[in-house]
Design a protein around this nucleic acid. Structure first.
Lengths: 389, 389
DNA sequence: CCACTGCATGAATCCGAGG
DNA sequence: ACCTCGGATTCATGCAGTG
């Protein structure tokens, strides 16, 4: 399997810009980039106008290192932007030394930022001289190809992972050390090996099984390793043969997790019960009136599941929007039915209905979730029994 | 008191770039800048309960394009750079919408970044639509005028404030709400009032009593208010007369904290006990031998506090450097004394000595919290009692 | 005075499938 | 690409009101 002349699920040796140029437009689902902070002038550099910079005689003389770094950054960011699918996600990580330049240039190149994420390190290296605040974090940027891009974001999975609270922009992840830290002959193989946990969260949140994940600065191969483990395809670019060898050793020991375990079950919830269904089942009675929360407005339920207000017929959404003088509105959040002299939200009623009569074994374990109906409706509609007009 | 045509301890109405130009070169000790973020909000946003989010729609946050924003940013940053003293500190705050551009430009203008600081909000506004990670932080940048600048940093005070651990680059501070949030006729006076706690930390860590603190985007006046409270002088620039009025009301209610309470006592610790002092007090005995960590090397203590090794006399530092074949070395980290057949670092012995017998009531005054209680020295020199050769 | 509930609100680049 | 329209979506905190 390959993209152009680049094989999939391999780490390719070479200069990242040159290799990026071999990839077709709009071919990559997810890019994770951990660019060097200190630029080494090994490759060739081009100015934004495509004139070549002589790295030795020109760049060092006429540009300061900041400008050379900007040119380099723009080159690889432009290529990443080109190869990213319109629905793809782009991630980059850095520290204050480079992330502001990278962030500004990626905006200039057309990327649209969705979040900056702070990787908070519980165990950073201290500031030994006591001259600054202990630099205890790194910054990631998550961006799409353009402002209008639609993108993959497994919101509910992230929320479940965070104990049912939405995942925040601050991620507490220890630095890579101990067992996880790859060593060759007792010395660490790579100076900036990223923790797998960080890549897990990036890849799980913004890509799907089978996607192609590219890391243009592959390094110790954490991106490839995690991608493989999570059932994604990967492409890595790396200049140093030694790091490629380290990565290949690493990859050889990884078995992908079984596909069924990788499914985003929590995201695939059934569509909720439509309004008409509540009428069919007798939860809502044809002819009864629904009320606004304050009870001051009402509309009558028709046999075709529409509401009638002042002679105008429409969906629960449409009529609520009319009353609120808005373009659109979610009727489920607007209408209440009168039960036992109390107003009960039709959304609550629907939730109750779902809970009782639809199989809700929508847990991690059950793969049969999709269509299984476990309980026949046996109870009568006791709670809403008096739904007579 | 004034700087050029700008009065000190006043908020001045007008455009910040024009007003900055009135300030002399190298005249400001600390700048805290909270520029417009250039949020680019589209429609209206509703919470799930259908209430409308009161967004930042102020005219001052609107820019025609990011190019216009960049030009504006470069203008005020250049002026800030000019007016900052060579020993001064520059701070700026922003979110992912603008901070990368600001950060890159401030580097271009010549500032030298020391840290980026993450203001982590325990209570941010959620992401209501479940479309992104909850943006739960803002970013501050701390920079000096140039790479070679010396600067004020109250490292020890920050450390004490952080329970004797180095202050980190992630600051957990709640957003400004409740009592602290200034309201006029029941509505918030300013859409982006910063918490005083944030400014306290900035001002306490990187300025001194009597310094001049400038906020070119004064807004609700938090910088001026905290500066006044902490015994600093302030200058504020603000375009909107309404905000100036709010600030003046605010300032009128603030009394500076008493000077003695503001002193950086923890920074002014006595110089550590010199080696000779340990000899005088009998901790180290004249004539005994000190040893390298592995015990393989040793030198003898002389009456004049020097060590003798192979006939050569020198300080603990000099002799350790000789042994390590280095130009300089910290002898405190090299030498061990034999006590109870164990080797004990002379630095540990010194630390113990300091802790017990030097009055260190110079604890950190946290301004808002109780003074920590200092225990009187009660134990005797039991631990090193047997320091006989 | 305390306990509890309900409600308001904060720098927000905040929908997406299907026609 | 544009338009329509169904319907999915929130956390911590402070304060007012009530019992």
């Amino acid at each position: 399997m390959n993209l152009g002349s680049i094989n999939i699920n391999q780490i390719r040796q070479g200069d990242c810009v040159e290799l990026l140029k071999k990839l077709p437009d709009n071919s990559i689902d997810l890019i994770f980039a951990d660019p060097p902070y200190n630029l080494q002038l090994n490759g060739e550099l081009y100015r934004p106008n495509q004139t070549k910079v002589d790295a030795v005689t020109d760049a060092w003389d006429k540009f300061d290192s900041k400008e050379v770094y900007d040119i380099f950054t723009e080159q690889w960011l432009k290529e990443c932007h080109r190869v990213l699918k319109p629905t793809g996600s782009f991630w980059v990580i850095g520290t204050y030394h480079n992330i502001f330049r990278v962030g500004a240039i990626l905006q200039n190149v057309g990327f649209w930022m969705l979040n900056d994420i702070i990787w908070v390190k519980p165990n950073p290296m201290p500031n030994f001289k006591g001259t600054r605040f202990n630099n205890a974090h790194e910054t990631l940027i998550w961006a799409t190809k353009s402002q209008k891009s639609s993108y993959t974001f497994h919101y509910h999975s992230m929320k479940v992972a965070n104990d049912d609270l939405q995942m925040r922009s601050d991620w507490f992840i220890p630095i890579c050390q101990g067992e996880e830290r790859i060593k060759v002959n007792g010395v660490k193989a790579h100076s900036t090996q990223k923790p797998a946990e960080l890549l897990m969260r990036v890849i799980l949140s913004t890509s799907n099984v089978g996607d192609i994940v590219l890391d243009p600065f592959s390094g110790s191969g954490t991106t490839a390793a995690v991608a493989k483990r999570l059932g994604r395809n990967f492409i890595g670019f790396e200049r140093e043969p030694f790091y490629i060898q380290v990565t290949n050793d690493r990859l050889s020991k990884i078995t992908p997790i079984d596909k069924p375990l990788l499914e985003y079950k929590i995201e695939k919830r059934k569509p909720k019960v439509p309004f008409g269904n509540l009428i069919e089942k007798g939860y809502i009675k044809i002819g009864e009136f629904l009320y606004s929360r304050d009870g001051k407005q009402s509309a009558q339920v028709q046999a075709d599941s529409s509401l009638i207000l002042d002679g105008e017929a429409g969906s629960i959404h449409k009529i609520s929007a009319t009353l609120l003088k808005k373009e659109n509105h979610n009727g489920w959040a607007f209408w209440y039915a009168k039960r036992n002299k109390q107003l009960i939200s039709i959304d609550t009623m629907r939730y109750d209905f779902e809970k009782k009569y639809i199989a809700t074994k929508a847990t991690y374990q059950t793969l049969e979730f999709e269509n299984s109906v476990v309980n026949e409706p046996e109870e009568s509609f006791l709670k809403y029994e008096d739904h007579v007009i």
